[in-house]
Measured scan of single mutants.
Amino acid sequence: LQLFIKTLTGKTFTVEMEPSDTIENLKAKIQDKEGIPPDQQRLIFAGKQLEDGRTLSDYNIQKESTLHLVL
C-alpha cells in the first residue's frame, strides 16, 4: 500500500509498504529514501505516536493514508 509521509517543513514523499510491515520497517524505508536515522523519527497517525513493534494494520493504516514525520 502506498503511504504519504508529510514532514513539518511541508515536504511530502511516498513509500510503498505492506499492511503486515512494522513501524520499524517503515522507519527503515524512510531512512533509505530520506537518510533520516530511525531513532530520530517520530511518526504520528490520527493523533497517535506509532510504536516500532506494531504493524501498520494494528493502527488501521490504509492505502494512501498520510503519516506525519516529526524529527
Score class of each variant (00 low, 15 high):
residue 50 L to K: 00
residue 1 L to P: 07
residue 56 L to F: 07
residue 4 F to K: 08
residue 11 K to M: 10
residue 37 P to M: 14
residue 71 L to C: 04
residue 10 G to I: 03
residue 22 T to R: 11
residue 19 P to Q: 15
residue 1 L to E: 04
residue 19 P to V: 07
residue 23 I to D: 00
residue 48 K to M: 15
residue 36 I to Q: 05
residue 66 T to A: 08
residue 58 D to G: 06
residue 46 A to Y: 15
residue 15 V to K: 01
residue 3 L to H: 00
residue 39 D to V: 04
residue 13 F to H: 04
residue 2 Q to E: 12
residue 52 D to L: 08
residue 57 S to P: 03
residue 14 T to Q: 12
residue 55 T to L: 04
residue 45 F to M: 06
residue 37 P to W: 14
residue 4 F to Y: 14
residue 66 T to L: 13
residue 21 D to G: 07
residue 12 T to I: 15
residue 27 K to N: 01
residue 39 D to L: 13
residue 53 G to H: 14
residue 42 R to I: 07
residue 26 L to G: 00
residue 18 E to R: 10
residue 52 D to Y: 05
residue 65 S to C: 03
residue 24 E to M: 07
residue 22 T to W: 14
residue 50 L to M: 15
residue 40 Q to E: 13
residue 46 A to S: 07
residue 16 E to Y: 10
residue 22 T to H: 09
residue 38 P to L: 11
residue 49 Q to M: 09
residue 49 Q to V: 06
residue 39 D to Y: 10
residue 14 T to G: 06
residue 60 N to K: 09
residue 13 F to W: 09
residue 60 N to C: 03
residue 19 P to R: 09
residue 71 L to E: 14
residue 10 G to V: 04
residue 66 T to F: 11
residue 44 I to P: 00
residue 41 Q to R: 01
residue 57 S to H: 15
residue 20 S to F: 15
residue 19 P to T: 10
residue 32 D to T: 14
residue 37 P to R: 13
residue 51 E to F: 06
residue 16 E to Q: 08
residue 69 L to D: 00
residue 63 K to Q: 15
residue 30 I to W: 00
residue 49 Q to K: 05
residue 29 K to C: 03
residue 67 L to D: 01
residue 56 L to M: 07
residue 7 T to F: 11
residue 22 T to D: 04
residue 14 T to Y: 08
residue 9 T to A: 10
residue 54 R to K: 12
residue 4 F to C: 03
residue 30 I to R: 00
residue 3 L to S: 00
residue 12 T to A: 14
residue 43 L to R: 00
residue 7 T to E: 12
residue 16 E to I: 11
residue 12 T to V: 10
residue 69 L to Q: 02
residue 12 T to C: 05
residue 28 A to V: 09
residue 53 G to R: 08
residue 57 S to D: 14
residue 66 T to Y: 10
residue 8 L to Y: 10
residue 18 E to L: 08
residue 29 K to E: 09
residue 46 A to T: 08
residue 61 I to F: 07
residue 38 P to Q: 06
residue 17 M to W: 09
residue 55 T to Y: 06
residue 35 G to Y: 04
residue 13 F to C: 02
residue 32 D to L: 08
residue 62 Q to C: 03
residue 8 L to H: 14
residue 53 G to E: 15
residue 2 Q to G: 06
residue 40 Q to Y: 14
residue 68 H to K: 08
residue 18 E to A: 11
residue 43 L to T: 01
residue 25 N to H: 15
residue 21 D to W: 03
residue 70 V to L: 15
residue 38 P to E: 12
residue 30 I to S: 00
residue 60 N to T: 04
residue 34 E to M: 14
residue 21 D to I: 03
residue 6 K to H: 08
residue 42 R to M: 12
residue 40 Q to D: 09
residue 12 T to P: 10
residue 56 L to R: 01
residue 3 L to G: 00
residue 31 Q to T: 10
residue 64 E to R: 04
residue 36 I to W: 14
residue 3 L to F: 10
residue 15 V to E: 01
residue 8 L to Q: 06
residue 38 P to G: 08
residue 7 T to I: 09
residue 28 A to Q: 15
residue 64 E to F: 05
residue 40 Q to H: 07
residue 6 K to T: 11
residue 1 L to I: 15
residue 28 A to M: 05
residue 4 F to P: 02
residue 71 L to G: 12
residue 62 Q to S: 05
residue 55 T to D: 05
residue 65 S to R: 03
residue 71 L to I: 13
residue 34 E to S: 10
residue 21 D to T: 14
residue 16 E to S: 08
residue 26 L to T: 03
residue 55 T to N: 09
residue 11 K to W: 05
residue 48 K to W: 15
residue 5 I to P: 00
residue 30 I to P: 00
residue 41 Q to T: 06
residue 32 D to C: 04
residue 42 R to P: 01
residue 51 E to D: 12
residue 50 L to E: 00
residue 57 S to E: 14
residue 49 Q to I: 07
residue 44 I to E: 15
residue 43 L to V: 10
residue 20 S to P: 06
residue 32 D to F: 13
residue 24 E to I: 12
residue 10 G to K: 02
residue 56 L to W: 02
residue 34 E to H: 08
residue 51 E to A: 09
residue 6 K to I: 13
residue 66 T to P: 04
residue 5 I to K: 00
residue 12 T to E: 15
residue 71 L to R: 09
residue 46 A to M: 07
residue 54 R to L: 14
residue 29 K to F: 15
residue 26 L to M: 06
residue 27 K to D: 00
residue 66 T to N: 06
residue 55 T to R: 13
residue 26 L to K: 00
residue 9 T to F: 08
residue 5 I to G: 00
residue 35 G to M: 08
residue 57 S to N: 09
residue 69 L to H: 01
residue 69 L to Y: 02
residue 49 Q to Y: 06
residue 63 K to T: 06
residue 24 E to A: 08
residue 7 T to P: 12
residue 42 R to K: 13
residue 64 E to N: 10
residue 35 G to K: 14
residue 43 L to G: 00
residue 40 Q to F: 08
residue 10 G to Q: 06
residue 67 L to G: 02
residue 59 Y to V: 03
residue 14 T to E: 07
residue 32 D to N: 04
residue 48 K to D: 10
residue 7 T to C: 03
residue 10 G to C: 03
residue 64 E to T: 05
residue 18 E to I: 09
residue 59 Y to S: 07
residue 39 D to A: 11
residue 24 E to S: 11
residue 17 M to C: 03
residue 59 Y to Q: 04
residue 28 A to H: 05
residue 14 T to S: 15
residue 17 M to N: 02
residue 66 T to M: 11
residue 34 E to Y: 09
residue 57 S to T: 09
residue 46 A to Q: 10
residue 60 N to Q: 04
residue 68 H to E: 11
residue 30 I to Y: 01
residue 25 N to D: 12
residue 7 T to W: 11
residue 16 E to R: 12
residue 7 T to A: 10
residue 38 P to R: 15
residue 61 I to L: 09
residue 47 G to C: 03
residue 27 K to H: 02
residue 54 R to A: 13
residue 64 E to M: 09
residue 69 L to F: 03
residue 34 E to A: 10
residue 9 T to W: 08
residue 25 N to V: 15
residue 9 T to D: 12
residue 8 L to T: 14
residue 47 G to F: 04
residue 38 P to N: 13
residue 5 I to A: 00
residue 48 K to C: 04
residue 2 Q to S: 14
residue 22 T to I: 06
residue 47 G to N: 07
residue 23 I to R: 00
residue 15 V to M: 05
residue 68 H to R: 15
residue 11 K to Q: 08
residue 47 G to M: 08
residue 18 E to S: 09
residue 8 L to S: 11
residue 38 P to C: 03
residue 47 G to W: 05
residue 38 P to I: 15
residue 62 Q to I: 10
residue 54 R to W: 12
residue 60 N to W: 03
residue 4 F to D: 04
residue 14 T to N: 10
residue 6 K to R: 10
residue 52 D to W: 04
residue 28 A to Y: 10
